[in-house]
Amino acid sequence: MKIIIYCLLLTAYCLLPTANIWADKSEVLIAAASDLQFAMQDLIKVFGGIYPDSRIKVSYGSSGNFFSQIKNGAPFDIFFSADMKYPEKLAEEGYGLKGESPVMYAVGRIVIWVSSKSPVDVGKLKFESLLHPSVKKIAIANPEHAPYGMAAKESLLHEGFFEKVKDKFVMGENISQTAQFVQSGAADIGIIALSLAISPKMIENGRYWEIPSEYHNPLKQGFILLKDSEKNTTAKQFADFVKSAEGVSILKKYGFKAANNE
C-alpha cells in the first residue's frame, strides 16, 4: 500500500512541470511540408545567427495533414505548405493572422530518383526508367494529401505512363517518407522533390532526372502566419527572413525556384 502511495506521489510530482508547456509562447512552432526537411534546417540556422534568442521548433509532414490539423486547433504559428491552395483556404476561413495574407515563397520541382546501385540510367531513360525490368516498386507520395504526390501523378498522366506503372506504387505519407523509401532501397525508384534529391544525404547515394515543370501544375509553395502567432514577434521576423534575399538564396540552394509573382 505504501509503495503504491509513493508511486502516486512520484508520478504526481512528474505532472507538475507539464503545466508550463502551454504557457510558453516565446518560441515559434512551424508546420512545414516535408520537402523543406533540409532547407528549413539551414534557414533556421542562419536566422538563429541574426536573432540569437529565437527559439524555433519544426514539425514536418504532408501539407494536407497539416491543413486539417490546423483546422482542428493545432497550435502552429507558421504553416509552410507545398501547395498554395492550403494557406489560401486557411486564410479564407479565418485561420490566418489578421492583416496578413498567404505568401508564395517558391516553386517546387519533382525528380525521378534512383540509388547509385541501381542499373537504371535515369538521365537517358527518363520516364521509361519506371518500366525498366529491375523496377519492382515505385515510391510516390500519396496524391490524396501530398502535393508532390499529386504532381507526380499529373506528370505520369501527362506522359501516358500512369496506367502502366500504377500497380507498382508504394505510397509515402509525405514526400520525405517517399524519399526514405527509395534511399533505403525499399523501393527501386521514386518520384521525389528536387529539394530532397539535392540534400547531402540523398545526393551521395543516388542520381536523378528533373521532370520538366510543364508536365504538372506548378508546385506553388506558400506560407501563412496563423492566428496563434499574434503575440509572437519572432514568427513575424522569421516570415520576413524567408522572404528576404538571404532566405530566397538559401531556398534556391535547395532547388526551390524563386516565386516571381507576389
Partner: peptide
C-alpha cells in the same frame, strides 16, 4: 497528437520522424 515538438512528439513519433529525415 499530430507530431508537435515538445507538446505531442513522443519517442515513437520522434523515431519515425528521424527515419524520414534520414
Amino acid at each position: 497528437g499530430g507530431n508537435i515538438p515538445g507538446v505531442t512528439r513522443t519517442v515513437s513519433i520522434d523515431i519515425y520522424d528521424n527515419v524520414q529525415a534520414l
